[in-house]
Amino acid sequence: MSRSVLVTGGNRGIGLAVARAFAEAGDRVAVTYRTGEPPAELKELGCLAVTCDVTDADAVERAFGEVEEAHGPVEVLVANAGITRDRLLMRMSEEDFTDVLDTNLTGVFRVVRQAAGEMLMARRGRIVLVSSVVGLLGSAGQANYAASKAGLVGFARSVARELGARGITCNVVAPGFVETDMTRALSEEQRAAMLDRVPLARGAHADEIAAAVQYLASEGAAYVTGAVLPVDGGLGMGH
């Protein structure tokens, strides 16, 4: 059955791969993006692209209105939008910290709260939050990012307990080192240092993260909620 799927931050990297996977499976897919122009691939896939800054509650409400008008109420929400402001602790400003938390954690609260209303009335829904292995392991220079991604775990498990009786699941995917434009820009030395810690000795492809998201949104995962699914090549095992 074709579902109304919304992927925040779906214009590149993991978000774009997730949007592609759902669209190719026949779902009605919408993505949010904050600035610039969405890639042509989204139009080719038949995806609806909506501008939205997840730090603005009014913008979130407007974006959901556009999606619902075109595709119906959101049945699958993938909260992927996020930013980084990497700094060592003693060089990190309060703005560096709060901006990352506002986008990566409070932004997720805003979109989940918006989606939950219709899901509660329908008595069904799938919510998948995209976290990071950094939220489990920590990372020097990423105290803000790690805090935001770790916060998603407690948030997801609380939502899972609140909404589970209405047939709504809420789970977390925790990617590790993913081959994206951002990681491809790293030097060979930086890449080697990161991959040396990964038991599978390679980075993930964005499509592999998308496959995990699709599983958690599927009927096959109807009895999975409050889970954290690592897709990190073994980097964070034990956490």
Rank of each mutant, 00 (worst) to 15 (best):
V173E: 00
G26V: 13
V198E: 10
L6E: 03
F64V: 04
D232Y: 14
E61S: 11
R113A: 14
Q214A: 15
G72K: 02
V29F: 09
E75W: 02
I168S: 00
A70C: 00
S187C: 06
K149Q: 14
A204Q: 14
A81F: 02
G82M: 08
E75Y: 03
G220W: 09
R28E: 07
S187Y: 03
E75I: 06
R62A: 15
A150M: 08
V172R: 00
A185E: 07
P199S: 12
A174M: 00
A221M: 11
A147E: 01
L235W: 09
E179H: 03
A30N: 15
N80M: 07
E95A: 14
V5P: 08
V74I: 06
V128L: 10
C52V: 08
V173Y: 00
A156Y: 02
A185T: 13
M119L: 14
K149T: 13
R123L: 06
V198L: 13
R3S: 12
L216K: 04
G234L: 06
D232R: 12
V78K: 00
K149E: 08
I83F: 12
V228W: 12
Q214V: 12
R197S: 01
A146S: 11
S93H: 03
V67M: 00
I168E: 00
L88P: 04
F109A: 05
S132C: 05
S131Y: 05
E66V: 00
A192R: 09
A19V: 15
A201R: 15
M1Q: 03
A192L: 05
L186D: 02
L195C: 02
A63M: 06
R110Q: 09
V231K: 05
V134K: 07
T51G: 06
V133H: 07
M1S: 07
R85S: 08
F64D: 01
A206T: 14
R123Y: 05
R110G: 15
A79V: 03
G234V: 10
R157H: 11
S132H: 03
E41A: 12
A227G: 14
G203W: 11
A212R: 09
G117P: 13
G167F: 04
G164A: 12
G13V: 14
I209D: 12
V18A: 04
G13R: 10
